[in-house]
């Protein structure tokens, strides 16, 4: 039972982080707060994928003293799985790209309506 909890408590904390981000995206009225919630949500999902890659007893995915050797036998269980790291590297950069476009749209909204609160924007649109 205690092993079961120790193996899984970090997954539960990632889900709590994801719930914090989702709650901020749904409930908060300020648009910057919504963007902050989106950032937290994406980071929690990236954290979950990175944690899938870790192996007990594995080191960093970099080979030592490997330059110039042709026939090197590598034991797979000694190295962490590098594939999720690569995919999440792409996801972090895409996250910042979406953040930039969201903030540009937000500046445009402020220029047109003069406020960032969602209910005041809805009142001025009518």
């Amino acid at each position: 039972m205690i092993d079961f909890i120790i193996e899984r408590y970090n997954f539960w904390i990632y889900i709590i982080l994801m719930m914090i981000g989702l709650y901020a995206m749904i409930t908060k009225r300020n648009l910057v707060k919504k963007v902050i919630g989106m950032n937290i949500f994406q980071t929690a999902i990236i954290l979950f994928y990175i944690s899938l890659a870790s192996k007990r007893g594995g080191t960093l995915p970099i080979l030592e003293h490997a330059h110039g050797e042709e026939n090197l036998t590598v034991d797979v269980s000694n190295y962490i799985n590098p594939l999720p790291h690569v995919l999440m590297l792409t996801a972090i950069v895409v996250m910042v790209a979406t953040l930039g476009v969201a903030l540009a749209i937000l500046i445009l909204i402020y220029r047109k309506y003069g406020t960032l609160e969602e209910d005041e924007i809805l009142k001025k649109m009518q």
Binding site: N10, S51, A53, S54, K55, G58
Partner: peptide, 11 residues
């Protein structure tokens, strides 16, 4: 599969 399991399907 638990955290850090070397036999998980992902690896």
């Amino acid at each position: 599969p638990g955290w850090g399991d070397p036999d998980s399907p992902a690896s």
